[in-house]
Design a protein around this nucleic acid. Structure first.
Length: 464
DNA sequence: TGCACATTCAG
DNA sequence: TGAATGTGC
């Protein structure tokens, strides 16, 4: 029997581990819930719910191929190896297959599993599917990993352009196997979500539908529309990429298919796929990132403010800065935030409030349905100017200018901050005018933008 | 994907 | 006088 261990690759098409296993003979699929580790990793309730709903579709799709899906539980990653081994023994598994996950805890878990399986005579086969170019394959001429995105992308593009492999097909149905599939478990204790599941239909079919729709309708206008949070101009595929309902290879292939008519749009989206890969590569090349350390070591000495009250206001979307509050409320209401607004809210926390970016990183993970360690950490370290190739520390976004530029009519702001529905657009984008007409249901700005910006620049300068 | 302040230059 | 451009944080 060939065991396919599903993790963040919950799909049948273009799944290297599944494809290879099915080539070899009869397949048994498994998935392990690790609720203790999920809590430790601050996985959002919305994401746990999304995973379980995705598993429901995966199990149905696998059943059509006569592949049983067995679901087991191991509280922490440390408990995983014996569980997999006992599965292997119970079902006479001779070979195991899985697709890599790159953060340190996941790699350690997988090493332990591989060691135990190999010691028991089970062959282990590992594949790459969370990236377009596997980590370690995009290197400088001296053999070291890139720290800067632009040269990384140049090399990455050569790989991505040269050999776009064919999308791996869904395996053919196998002969029935006398192993019953597990029922999909309920959400483990401690994961609550205020997010309507109807916003995020799960499953591979839904992911493919969204991918194709994006290619047909939005890719061409992507360069202009993607920065406007009031418009659904981004792909909104991140939750599906995070659980692996769609692969980055499928995204790249779609962009290349539409290259003729979408032109700039395709190139622009491929650039975003490159950023995704870049951050995945960074956690492999620089594992200290996974230990809560900033990439720029001197920024570890910054005297972040201990301001629990300000932090709480940021979390709840009560900072008095309309675009920041709209973003934070979008996150709470939908489990997702527009990328432009992620940058604005992250910079407001780490610069204007001078609160440790790691608190914001953790809070995002607690609420994002698309929470991916590498992408979230990479984005935070970019905004907080602690990362490799991050925004320069003195280039602090002015959230009012950003709002005027990217939400000129205030449509996005008013959608998520109803108290501002009655405020004129011109007043919305000017702190002084806003304060004069501010409705009683909306808070005063919690920080002086000008002073706090200078304080942040001074704090960074002092450790430089 | 900043901002403040300086300098230059057309009119 | 104010737009355009340069410079350092």
């Amino acid at each position: 029997m060939n065991l396919v261990w599903f993790r963040n690759d919950l799909r049948l098409q273009d799944n290297p581990a599944l494809h290879a296993a099915a080539d070899r003979g009869p397949v048994l699929a498994c998935y392990l819930l690790t609720p203790g580790q999920w809590r430790r990793h601050r996985m959002a309730g919305a994401r746990v719910d999304f995973i379980l709903r995705s598993l429901r579709y995966l199990s149905e799709d696998l059943a059509r191929l006569n592949i049983p899906l067995v679901i087991e539980q191991a509280n922490f990653f440390d408990d995983v190896a014996p569980v997999i081994l006992s599965l292997a023994k119970r079902f006479k598994v001779s070979a195991a297959f899985w697709n890599e996950e790159y953060p340190l805890d996941e790699q350690r878990r997988d090493e332990a599993v591989a060691d135990l399986l190999l010691a028991s005579g089970v062959v282990v086969n590992r594949f790459h599917d969370r990236v377009i170019a596997p980590p370690g394959t995009v290197l400088k001429s001296d053999g070291r990993p890139y720290r800067v995105f632009t040269p990384f992308k140049r090399t990455w593009l050569q790989l991505a352009d040269a050999g776009v492999p064919d999308i791996l097909p869904v395996p053919a149905a196998q002969a029935a196997v006398p192993i019953p599939s597990s029922a999909i478990p309920e959400t483990p204790a401690g994961f609550s979500t205020g997010v309507d599941p109807g916003l995020w239909p799960a499953g591979e079919r839904e992911a493919m539908k969204r991918l194709r729709l994006f290619g047909r309708l939005k890719l061409k206008s992507y360069p202009e529309q993607r920065d406007i949070p009031a418009v659904a101009g981004t792909s909104i595929l991140s939750p599906y990429l995070a659980v692996g309902a769609v692969s980055p290879q499928q995204c790249l292939r779609l962009a290349l298919q539409h290259r003729q008519e979408a032109g700039e749009g395709a190139a622009c989206w491929i650039n975003e796929l490159a950023w995704r890969d870049f951050y995945q590569h960074l956690v492999v090349a620089f594992p200290q990132i996974c230990k809560g350390r900033p990439f720029k070591t001197e920024t570890a000495r910054i005297a972040w403010r201990d301001a629990p009250h300000d932090f709480e206001r940021w979390c709840q979307g009560n900072t008095g800065v309309p675009i920041v509050d709209a973003g934070m409320r979008q996150l709470l209401a939908t489990g997702w935030m527009h990328n432009r607004v992620r940058m604005i809210t992250a910079m407001f926390l780490s610069k204007n409030l001078l609160i440790d970016w790691r608190r914001g990183e953790a809070y995002f993970m607690e609420h994002l349905i698309d929470g991916d360690f590498a992408a979230n950490n990479g984005g935070w370290q970019w905004s907080a100017s602690t990362g490799t190739d991050a925004v320069p520390y003195f280039r602090v976004f002015n959230p009012f200018s950003q709002a005027a530029r990217f939400d000129p009519e205030g449509i996005y702001i008013r959608r998520f901050v109803p108290a501002l529905k009655t405020v004129d657009t011109a007043d919305l984008h000017d702190p002084l005018r806003l304060e004069k007409v501010r409705p009683s249901g909306y808070p005063e700005v919690i920080v002086d933008l000008k002073k706090s910006r200078l304080a942040a620049i001074a704090a960074f300068k002092s450790v430089g």
